[in-house]
Computed example of a mutant assay.
Amino acid sequence: MTDIVTFADDFFGAVANGDIDAVRRYYRDDVKVWHNFDNLEQDKATNVATLASIPDRYDTFEYAEIRHTPIEGGFLRQHVIKASRNGKRAHVPAILRVYVEDGQVYRIEEYFDYGQLKSALGF
């Protein structure tokens, strides 16, 4: 089980550090990333583009209070999104169910209050 925690740390380390090439390698080509706030699934190219655009959309962006919990077929990731934009700050809790098979992510289900993020940062 600790192998999946190491995988989780490494994968989200790549996300947090903006290592988009590494994120691509962690994703299967058919990965789907679903969000509760819009009930839509992103494909690999769309999600990678979203992650790559974080520095353009925020002045600061980080994940805090990180926890990874191994579960059957992957792990749960809990964190708080800490972001700032134009002098405004947001702290938004999130949880993700990450499905992993053969060393690659094939599905993510992400739950957080996007309205809270938008409201706090003035989108």
Rank of each mutant, 00 (worst) to 15 (best):
D3I: 04
D3T: 12
I4A: 05
F7H: 07
F7T: 08
D9R: 15
D10Q: 15
G13H: 13
A14W: 13
A14T: 09
V15W: 15
V15G: 04
A16I: 03
D19I: 01
I20M: 07
R25C: 08
R25H: 13
Y26V: 11
Y27W: 12
D29V: 04
D30V: 11
V31L: 06
V31H: 11
V33N: 09
N39F: 07
E41F: 14
D43Q: 11
K44V: 06
A45W: 10
T46W: 10
V48Q: 10
T50C: 02
A52G: 10
S53E: 11
S53A: 14
I54V: 15
D59N: 09
Y63E: 02
A64Q: 12
E65N: 15
E65L: 09
R67Y: 00
I71T: 11
G73A: 13
G74F: 07
G74W: 05
L76E: 03
L76R: 01
H79T: 05
V80P: 01
V80Q: 04
V80L: 06
K82G: 03
K82I: 06
S84P: 05
R85E: 04
N86F: 00
N86M: 00
N86V: 00
N86Q: 09
N86H: 07
H91G: 04
P93M: 01
Y99E: 14
D102P: 09
G103L: 12
Y106E: 07
I108V: 14
E109Y: 13
E110Q: 12
Y111R: 05
Y111T: 09
D113Y: 10
D113T: 05
Y114L: 04
G115V: 03
K118M: 06
K118S: 10
K118E: 04
A120V: 00
L121E: 05
L121C: 02
G122L: 04
F123W: 14
